[in-house]
Each structure stands twice: as structure tokens, then as C-alpha cells.
Amino acid sequence: MIEVRFHSSLYDAEAVTEAIDVYADFARFERVGGDAAAPYIHVRIEASADGEISEEDVRAEFANYALGRTIERRDGREVAS
């Protein structure tokens, strides 16, 4: 099991949620802590038992997706949500 943290001033919480949905087939994701005011969004990642993709690879792809979606949401793709 590994963990990744996203600073809430840099990552959109909804984007992180979307990334979890997208990568749910490859690993089990768990948000750690539920304090909305906390500066970090912590996510624990446990790769699927079949071991097809390493936890590190899932973490890297997952974090990239979360950043991409953060930027896309900010650039106005999501209309006044």
C-alpha cells in the first residue's frame, strides 16, 4: 500500500474524485481523513491482487490524471459548476 497527497491549494477535490473513479479498476483507493479544511487530500492506494500494474505506476498515472482534470476544470471546461 502506498499513499499520495495533494495540496488543496493546487489540486481540485472533485478532480481527485474523478481520478479515483477512473482508476478504480486498477487499484483500491481510500481517502484518508475527512477534514475539508485540511491542506492535503490524502489517498491510499492498494493495487489489485493480480499485480498487473504496480502501485507506483498506478499512483503516477492517477496523480497525473488528477492534475490534468484540475487544470481542465479551472480553465472553464466545467461551466459554472
Binding site: 499520495v4 497527497r5 495540496h7 496523480a63 497525473n64 492534475l67 490534468g68 487544470i71
Partner: peptide
Amino acid sequence: AAYVFLDRCYVLLDR
């Protein structure tokens, strides 16, 4: 700038 690198790199930002 980060977006431009997403195809080639894994990018992580931290404060």
C-alpha cells in the same frame, strides 16, 4: 506549463 508536460512526464505539484 504543467499541462504541457503531461504527455511525457508524471507531474506532481506540492506546496
